[in-house]
């Protein structure tokens, strides 16, 4: 499948191969994602979804083919793309000894966000004052996930890469996350996320890429 490119392309992969320990986790993926697009990656376990996200984050090297993120050629330079990326992997990237609020504040201070942004992010993710003042090691999986998402919200990255962000969240938080992702794209950010979620009634289905065997097997447009 050849990628369609536009003048406003955020991600452009062409026959991208990523070999991890000799195994082609991504085996010739081709896709183009425009700036401000919301894209869901689907596929069975081991089909290359997480690797595709990590390639776009500049965290794994490109073995063959070409890959560009915001006009940065990942074959030549993986580091400079990272400053545009907000990544949420399978693990949350939190510090156990810090409270939920302190973890979000840490990200906010690094990127120069305001205290108000921290409060807004905590409120958006329904992290109340009790949870916010609790060390993250004592939080449930869902509360930790919400804290990581709040950190991502204050990060205000141009490219959001989320690996199963809905995992561990209750129904209300999943709906709120969908709204947050849509708002992020409305403000110009590009969002790619992997999911195993079944479609929920009344929810718009974003553009969906189905991965199989390390390649993009199908590309379904957004459905309202």
């Amino acid at each position: 499948m050849q990628p369609v490119t536009t003048n406003d392309t955020a991600i452009r992969l062409n026959d991208a191969v990523v070999a991890l320990g000799g195994f082609p986790a991504l085996a010739g993926a081709s896709v183009s994602v425009g700036r401000g697009e919301l894209v869901a990656l689907r596929g069975a376990n081991g089909t290359g979804k997480s690797t595709l996200l990590r390639l776009c984050a500049g965290l794994v090297p490109l073995t063959r083919g070409s890959a560009q993120v915001f006009d940065v050629n990942l074959a030549d330079d993986r580091a400079s793309v990272r400053r545009h990326v907000g990544l949420l992997g399978h693990r949350n990237g939190l510090y156990d000894e810090l409270t939920s609020r302190e973890n979000v504040e840490f990200t906010a201070r690094l990127v120069g966000a305001h205290t108000r942004d921290v409060e807004d992010a905590l409120a958006r993710l329904r992290i109340d004052s009790r949870v916010a003042s609790t060390r993250t090691r004592a939080l449930s999986a869902g509360q930790r996930r919400r804290t990581a998402l709040a950190s991502l919200v204050v990060r205000r990255a141009q490219l959001w890469l989320l690996d199963e962000p809905h995992a561990g969240l209750d129904a209300a938080a999943r709906d709120e996350l969908d709204v947050i992702l849509l708002e992020a794209t409305s403000s110009g950010a590009t969002v790619l996320y992997t999911t195993h979620e079944t479609d929920r009634p009344g929810r718009a289905v974003p553009r969906t890429l189905l991965l199989a065997g390390g390649v993009v097997a199908s590309d379904s447009p957004r459905q309202s």
């Binding site: 984050a57 990272r82 990326v85």
Partner: peptide, 8 residues
Amino acid sequence: EVLLTSAV
């Protein structure tokens, strides 16, 4: 990993 993708 998150720190390295945090514009730091």
